[in-house]
Design a protein around this nucleic acid. Structure first.
Lengths: 188, 188
DNA sequence: TGTACATCAGTGAACGCGCGTTCACTGATGTAC
DNA sequence: TGTACATCAGTGAACGCGCGTTCACTGATGTAC
């Protein structure tokens, strides 16, 4: 069957989008190409009309996630007083409950650390975020503070997702959220 | 071949120790029973003389890790001014470089979150740590501060292990270490 | 003390399964004449 | 306008591989007589 001109490009993008979701939600290793393609209503053989290998998809999907992340971060930081918004969103129950649509840092640490080329994308994500936060802090020690904030946010999300007690999970999120917001307020 | 009386118990423990290491280093899913047993100089079939299934090993190994962790934490917190020691050890280059011998929280978040029974062990690990830190803080807001500290430490380790640039990695660790140590000093 | 037997931790081939990957094939549509 | 052909995204069976698990077997040692 021959399709319309942009059909292949659309399918290509659908694969990337779904992969970016599943890699973050379930991990790279636990995401099979067969289930991935089935989710899109396709068969697994067709995958190789779009990508050379799973590894190539991983890199593409990671790059796509990084781009998306930068765009949404930049959007937040284009406004006034962006830091409280960023903190509230990052440490929201929604972000905690939907790792597939969120930040890849808390979920993919172990798998990212091992990959050579792909983990350079991680470096850029971390540096971009640090710069954005640092830029909106007027204090001395802005750099150290931005590192502390990012670390606390990533750690809080990791912990909130790891524990099985929902109350403990929410308590961790809420506490770090409030502490960081206070810190931002007192700094301005 | 029949072995000495405590031979089986020793092998049993060797399996648990190695599994606890590999689960933290490579993840549960990525750790195969065949390579695990081979590392111990055994064949894979013998595994089932010791455990009913891989799942049972996972639970046993996780419980063992939690116990070990509690023991080493308690040891640190039995001394005077334990917090600086704990912070320095947790955010050391050695801990960062050897996930297999360290805290399971930064590496196993995604895999732990999905497991029912096993993730209750995680709850206990988190609560134990919080209590230990909280107890050695004399300030008001000791609870909130201990949550912030744990989050920052876990997040810093996750980030330091995720990035590919060693300098960035060390910088993240060092900055969070110094910030937390200052915070502890100023609180006492 | 010497011999026959029981024990059972560990062996290694085999099982079904899902993985990533390959490949001969399909068939609706665009193009050539 | 009608027909023959080329295209190529997607199909689905098949590949080797490592996984978790099963099972008939081994053979050094302890026990019974």
């Amino acid at each position: 069957m021959r399709y319309s001109e942009d059909h292949k490009a659309k399918t290509h993008q659908r694969i990337i989008d779904e992969a970016a979701r599943l890699f973050r939600r379930d991990g790279i290793g636990a995401t099979g190409l067969q289930p991935l393609m089935k989710t899109l209503g396709l068969t697994h053989g067709g995958f190789y009309a779009h990508f050379k290998s799973k590894d190539q998809l991983v890199e593409t999907a990671l790059a796509h996630t990084a781009e998306q992340l930068k765009a949404s971060t930049d959007e937040i930081f284009a406004n006034d007083a962006p830091l409280p918004t960023f903190i509230r969103r990052y440490l929201s129950s929604a972000h905690c409950a939907n790792p597939g649509d969120g930040c890849p840092l808390p979920t993919m640490s172990s798998e990212l650390g091992l990959r050579g080329q792909a983990s350079e994308i991680t470096d850029q994500v971390v540096r971009d975020r640090l710069q954005a936060i640092e830029g909106s802090l007027d204090t001395e020690e802005a750099e150290a503070q931005s590192i502390m904030m990012i670390s606390a946010m990533v750690g809080a999300l990791v912990l909130a997702r790891s524990v099985s007690d929902p109350q403990l999970s929410q308590h961790l999120l809420k506490t770090v959220r409030q502490q960081l917001l206070e810190q931002v307020e007192s700094a301005s």
